[in-house]
Write a protein that binds this DNA or RNA. Structure first.
Length: 293
DNA sequence: AAGTATGACAACCGCGTTTAT
DNA sequence: CATAAACGCGGTTGTCATACT
């Protein structure tokens, strides 16, 4: 039953890679391409676990890696994406060409966290550290926060169960009593609406940063669930899975974006300030920053 | 100059999901 | 269908470099 073992644990090297190992791996992949990590080490003449080879290639040897310092634009983009995606580093990395999830994760932990703390922002929640007195860019409208789902918030301990291909992020309206929780599904549709916030995640503030990026959201009423799409309009941003790069194997549901998001050669999408046609029941997203959806 | 603290990043570990048998 | 391993991801650790005392 089952597959054969991935590698012979007894004969595998660990620790830092040597130049020779790097060369062997690079040469092998250049000739044969990526994939089949299980058989790669043996085929390439490496005494490494396939898992280790994959990691080395992805995080260090891949030719398309950018390396070097992160630009301020990348900083802000990471912060913004983290607001939506939480610690989903692979998904964040997918929006930053040439950067790896590991690199972004390290950079987040060593630089950006500190940066946010100095701004008075809790990096895990993107909320002010001290109940709102921090320098927060306030939205002109009632706060309509975007937060990571509760199961991807700050806890660093045990792994959480993954979430059945939905709930990439949750949106909370802040309309007093009837705080709605909306789960965005694979196709970008609103799947459910919950009337109170007893789940433990209470949202008081919009995720405020970076200062030049305003994030502003409002939600469709329950009646529009199932087929609400998060439109792109006039250069705006659709926050469906397609736009955010949240694709999975079985995500064939079409997004009903009115137009595809394009980002011609790094030109940032500019400010989005025009609401979608349905008025106050619309998901709005103001991004004056460096989004490249 | 030596010792210590801190930062940066590569690599490992363990878990959940997917997939081959 | 059940099982077990591959795969992929996120969290954590180890190690080296640099700054500070």
């Amino acid at each position: 039953m089952g597959r054969s073992p991935c590698c012979e644990k007894d004969h595998t090297n660990k620790g830092a890679w040597s130049k020779e190992e790097d060369d062997r791996l690079t040469n092998y992949i250049n000739i044969h391409g990526e994939g089949c990590w299980r058989s790669l080490p043996k085929a390439a003449g490496l005494l490494r676990c396939g898992k280790s080879c994959r990691l080395r290639w992805i995080n260090y040897l891949r030719p398309d890696l950018k390396r070097g310092n992160f630009t301020p634009q990348e900083d802000e983009l990471i912060i913004s994406l983290h607001t939506f995606l939480g610690n989903k580093w692979s998904q964040i990395a997918a929006r930053l060409p040439g950067r790896t999830d590991n690199e972004i994760k390290n950079y987040w932990n060593t630089h950006i966290k500190r940066k946010l703390f100095t701004r008075g922002i809790d990096p895990s929640t993107h909320k002010p550290l001290n109940g709102g007195s921090a320098a927060v860019v306030a939205s002109s409208q009632p706060e309509l926060p975007v937060v990571p789902t509760s199961n991807e918030s700050s806890s660093s301990s045990s792994k959480k169960k993954k979430n059945n291909n939905k709930s990439e992020f949750e949106l909370f309206s802040n309309n007093n009593m009837n705080r709605e929780k909306v789960v965005v599904t694979d196709s970008g549709c609103v799947e459910e609406s919950v009337s109170n916030s007893s789940s433990g995640v209470t949202i008081e503030e919009i995720a405020p940063y970076p200062p030049h990026i305003n994030l502003e959201l409002s939600l469709a009423p329950p009646s529009q669930q199932q087929q609400i799409s998060l439109y792109s309009w006039q250069g705006g941003v659709c926050l469906c899975r397609h736009a955010l790069g949240l694709h999975g194997n079985n995500h064939q549901l079409p997004c009903s974006c009115k137009k595809p998001i394009t980002h011609p050669h790094g030109t940032p999408s500019a400010t989005i300030q025009q609401p979608a046609p349905t008025g106050n029941d619309v998901f709005k997203f103001f991004g004056a920053g460096n989004f490249k959806f």
